[in-house]
Design a protein around this nucleic acid. Structure first.
Length: 498
RNA sequence: GCCGCUUUCGUCUAGCCCGGUUAGGACACAGCGUUCUCAGCGCUGGAACAUCGGUUCAAAUCCGAUAAGCGGCACCA
C-alpha cells in the first residue's frame, strides 16, 4: 500500500493551503483550506500546509499558531507541513531562502531576470509620465539591458537593486477547472519585481518555486489570485517548470457584496470559536458557500462532504457570508450530534473561555443541564449566558408586572405563587425533578377549576418568578436545575414583590 | 483608467453542457396549529432567470451586445 511506485501514488494529487501569517485565520482562508482538503481526501491525494512568511516584518508566530489551531479545530489535518514530517520540507518559506536564492541566481545568469537600480521615486515619476501620455502605468524597463560592468559599478557605489523578471510579449492562456479558459495579454504587464534581493524573494516567485519543489499538482485558491496566475506562469516558463492545474474559488462576500472583511464584522475563525459555534457547523456552512452537491441534502459531515465533493461543481460567482444560515447549521448540529459530544465541546469551550458566576453550585453537571434546557433556542454556546443569565446569578431584576398573566390581577397572581410555593415545598428534595414537578402541578391544576380553565394563571407567574424573563425554558425545567431551595427562594421573593 | 471575472427568490443555490419545468431545495420572512412564554415541531404562503436583441414552433438554457457588481493592477501575500 505504501509503495511509492504504485501508479496511484505517482499520480495522486498534491494540494496545499498556503496562508501568510500576517493576520488571524480568516474565514476565506478556512474555506480555501476546506476545499483543498476535501479535494485531497476525495482523490486520495495529499494536503499540505505551507506557511508563506516571506514578509518578515508582518509575519508573526502568533498568527501561524492561530492558523494551525484553527485548522485542527475544524478537523482539517494536513499531511505535510511545519511540525509534521514530509519529504518536501521545510514548509515555512522563511526557512527556504537558500532554495529561492539558487533559482533567482539561475534566472539572473540566464538573463531572464535582471537587477533594477531605479529608486521607487524614479519609478513613480516614470509611471506618472506614462499615465499622462495615456499609456498603462508600467515600469519602463530602463535597467533591462544594463551591461555587466554597469551593474558591477552600481553595486560598488552601494546601490541596492531589486530583481525583475523580463516579461515576454505574448498572450498567456490557462485553463481553470472552475472558470474554463482564461487569457491575459502580457504586453499590459510590467517586468514585475520577483525579489527585493537574492535573499528576499517576493510572493509570486516563492510560490512558483515551492509549488514545483513540493510537487503541487493542483493550485486551488481564491479568485483574488487569478491576476497573479499569468505572472506565476511566466516565472515557471522562464525556469522551465511544469504548470500545475488551476482552480480559482469564488470570493466570500460581505452583505454589500464586497470582499468579506473586518468592516463586515467578525472574519476570524477564532472569533466564532469564542462565540461557541461547533466546528462541524462551520465546516458544513463553509462547504456550501460556493459549492453544492447533487441532491437536496445540506446537512453533511466531513466524511459525506468528502464523498460528494467535486471541484467542477464549484460556483463561479461570489457568495455572501450569511450568519443566519451558520446559526441554523449550528442549531442542527446541536441537535444532531450525540449529546455526549456536545457536552464535550461545551466543556472544552468553558475551559478555553472561563466565566465567573455568582451562583455557588455551577458545576459541569449544572452547566450541562442548563445547556440541555437551552439547546433548542441558542445559536451558539455564548448565547446561553446572554439569554439565560438567571441560571447564573442570584439577583434577578424584573418589574412586578412581568409576573402578571394576561387578564389577571395582582391578587390572583399572588395566590398562584403561594399555591406554587406550597406544591414546591411538598416535594422532597430527592424527587425534585421536572417530571415529578410537572406531574404534581398538573394534578393540582386538574383539581382546580380556576387554573384548569387557563393554566397560564399559575404557570406564567411561576416561570416569570424563576427566570425574571418573558421568554425562557419551562418552569419545571428551570426549577429542577435551580434546585428546591433556590426555586422556593425565588417564588418567595416574587410574592413579596407584589 | 487598464486587465480579468461574475450575474436564477432578500441570502446560499438546483436546473444551463444535451432548448419544452406550475423554475426545485435550504436559510430568512409571514400566517395558522400545538403551547404558560420563548424556542422546537407540523402545515401553508409570498418571493428569482440583470437588460436588450437574435436563432427557434418553443430560450433560464444557444448566439450577440449592453449594463451593473466584484477582484487585481505593491520593494504585501
Amino acid at each position: 500500500m505504501d509503495d511509492p511506485k504504485t501508479p496511484q501514488q505517482l499520480f495522486a494529487p498534491r494540494v496545499r493551503i498556503a496562508p501568510s501569517p500576517t493576520g488571524w485565520f480568516h474565514f476565506g482562508t478556512a474555506r480555501t483550506a476546506l476545499f483543498n482538503f476535501l479535494f485531497a481526501r476525495k482523490t486520495g491525494g495529499k494536503f499540505i500546509l505551507r506557511i508563506e512568511d516571506t514578509d518578515q516584518i508582518r509575519s508573526k508566530k502568533l498568527y501561524e499558531d492561530n492558523i494551525k489551531e484553527g485548522l485542527k479545530w475544524l478537523n482539517l489535518e494536513w499531511d505535510e507541513g511545519p511540525d509534521k514530517a514530509g519529504d518536501f520540507g521545510p514548509y515555512r518559506q522563511s526557512e527556504r531562502i537558500d532554495i529561492y536564492k539558487k533559482y533567482l541566481q539561475q534566472l539572473l545568469d540566464e538573463g531572464k531576470a535582471y537587477y533594477c537600480f531605479c529608486s521607487p521615486e524614479e519609478i513613480e515619476a516614470q509611471k506618472q509620465d506614462m499615465v499622462s501620455r495615456g499609456l498603462p502605468p508600467k515600469y519602463s524597463g530602463k535597467c533591462r539591458d544594463l551591461s555587466p560592468e554597469t551593474v558591477k559599478q552600481y553595486f560598488k557605489e552601494g546601490k541596492n537593486p531589486v530583481i525583475r523578471i523580463k516579461m515576454p510579449n505574448k498572450i498567456i492562456k490557462f485553463n481553470d477547472i472552475i472558470r474554463g479558459e482564461v487569457e491575459f495579454n502580457l504586453d499590459l504587464l510590467e517586468d514585475i519585481i520577483i525579489a527585493k534581493s537574492l535573499t528576499e524573494p517576493l510572493y509570486n516567485f516563492s510560490v512558483v518555486i515551492d509549488d514545483y519543489l513540493m510537487q503541487i499538482t493542483h493550485v486551488i485558491r481564491g479568485e483574488d489570485h487569478v491576476s497573479n496566475t499569468p505572472k506565476q506562469i511566466v516565472i515557471q516558463e522562464a525556469l522551465g517548470l511544469p504548470r500545475p492545474i488551476y482552480a480559482h474559488l469564488p470570493m466570500i462576500l460581505g452583505p454589500d457584496r464586497s470582499k468579506f472583511s473586518k468592516r463586515h464584522g467578525a472574519t476570524a475563525l477564532s472569533e466564532y470559536q469564542k462565540l461557541g459555534y461547533l466546528p462541524e457547523a462551520i465546516v458544513n456552512f463553509l462547504a456550501l458557500l460556493g459549492w453544492h452537491p447533487v441532491g437536496d441534502n445540506e446537512i453533511m459531515n466531513l466524511e459525506q462532504l468528502i464523498n460528494n465533493f467535486e471541484l467542477e461543481r464549484v460556483q463561479k460567482g461570489g457568495a455572501i457570508f450569511n450568519i443566519q444560515k451558520l446559526n441554523w447549521f449550528n442549531n442542527q448540529y446541536l441537535k444532531l450530534l450525540p449529546r455526549e459530544k456536545v457536552f464535550a465541546y461545551f466543556e472544552e469551550y468553558m475551559k478555553k473561555y472561563p466565566r465567573k458566576f455568582d451562583l455557588p453550585n455551577t458545576s459541569h453537571e449544572y452547566l450541562n443541564k442548563v445547556l440541555e434546557s437551552e439547546i433548542l433556542r441558542i445559536n451558539n454556546f455564548s448565547e446561553i449566558f446572554t439569554n439565560s443569565d438567571f441560571f447564573f446569578t442570584k439577583n434577578l431584576h424584573y418589574q412586578k408586572d412581568l409576573l402578571i398573566w394576561k387578564g389577571e390581577s395582582e391578587q390572583t397572581t399572588k395566590q398562584a405563587l403561594i399555591d406554587a410555593s406550597k406544591i414546591m415545598e411538598s416535594i422532597p428534595e430527592i424527587d425534585f425533578n421536572s417530571i415529578n414537578l410537572q406531574a404534581k402541578f398538573y394534578s393540582f391544576i386538574d383539581n382546580n377549576a380556576f387554573y384548569q380553565q387557563n393554566r397560564g394563571r399559575i404557570l406564567w407567574p411561576l416561570r416569570a418568578a424563576l427566570s425574571g424573563k418573558s421568554a425562557s425554558p419551562g418552569p419545571f425545567e428551570i426549577a429542577e436545575i435551580l434546585g428546591k431551595k433556590e426555586t422556593i427562594k425565588r417564588i418567595k421573593q416574587a410574592i413579596e414583590l407584589i
